[in-house]
Amino acid sequence: MNNQLHGVTLEAIVTRLQEHYGWEQLAQRIEINCFISDPSIKSSLKFLRKTPWARTQVEDLYLATTF
């Protein structure tokens, strides 16, 4: 099994997506409150670690994005 996310932390994923898209574009792609209302890496990580469906969406966007 080849896991493309092996060794990539959730923090690295969120940081890279935020740098690439910005909070506003990220919120348009994945409509979750931690990207919409007063977004920060810390608040996003806290939410995503407790919310598997949202984390999956973020990981999928990361894998689909060509940096």
Score class of each variant (00 low, 15 high):
Met1Leu: 11
Met1Pro: 04
Asn2His: 05
Asn2Met: 08
Asn3Thr: 07
Asn3Gly: 05
Asn3Leu: 09
Gln4Met: 10
Gln4Ala: 15
Leu5Ala: 14
Leu5Trp: 08
His6Val: 01
His6Lys: 07
His6Ala: 08
Gly7Asn: 08
Gly7Asp: 09
Gly7Val: 14
Gly7Lys: 04
Gly7Phe: 09
Thr9Tyr: 01
Thr9Lys: 00
Leu10Phe: 00
Glu11Thr: 12
Glu11Asn: 09
Glu11Arg: 14
Glu11Ser: 10
Ala12His: 11
Ile13Met: 09
Ile13Asn: 06
Ile13Phe: 08
Ile13Pro: 01
Val14Pro: 00
Val14Cys: 01
Val14Met: 01
Thr15Val: 11
Arg16His: 04
Glu19Pro: 00
Tyr21Ala: 01
Tyr21Phe: 14
Tyr21Arg: 03
Gly22Trp: 00
Trp23Gln: 01
Glu24Ile: 10
Gln25Asp: 14
Gln25Asn: 13
Leu26Ile: 03
Ala27His: 04
Ala27Thr: 06
Ala27Arg: 08
Ala27Asn: 09
Gln28Ile: 08
Gln28Asp: 14
Arg29Ser: 09
Arg29Lys: 13
Ile30Tyr: 03
Glu31Asp: 15
Glu31Leu: 02
Ile32Ala: 03
Ile32Ser: 05
Asn33Tyr: 10
Cys34Trp: 02
Ile36Ser: 13
Ile36Glu: 11
Ile36Ala: 13
Ser37Glu: 12
Ser37Arg: 14
Asp38His: 15
Asp38Glu: 11
Asp38Phe: 13
Pro39Cys: 07
Ile41Tyr: 00
Ile41Ala: 03
Ile41Phe: 00
Lys42Trp: 09
Ser44Thr: 11
Ser44Glu: 07
Ser44Leu: 02
Leu45Glu: 08
Leu45Phe: 10
Leu45Ser: 06
Phe47Arg: 10
Leu48Gln: 00
Arg49Glu: 15
Lys50Val: 05
Lys50Gln: 15
Lys50Phe: 05
Lys50Asn: 10
Thr51Leu: 02
Pro52Lys: 03
Ala54Tyr: 07
Ala54Ile: 07
Ala54Gln: 05
Arg55Ala: 12
Val58Asp: 01
Val58Tyr: 03
Val58Thr: 14
Val58Gln: 02
Val58Ser: 02
Glu59Phe: 03
Glu59Tyr: 08
Asp60Ala: 14
Asp60Pro: 00
Leu61Trp: 04
Tyr62Ala: 03
Leu63Gly: 05
Ala64Arg: 14
Ala64Ile: 07
Thr65Gln: 04
Thr65Asp: 04
Thr66Ser: 13
Thr66Pro: 02
Phe67Trp: 13
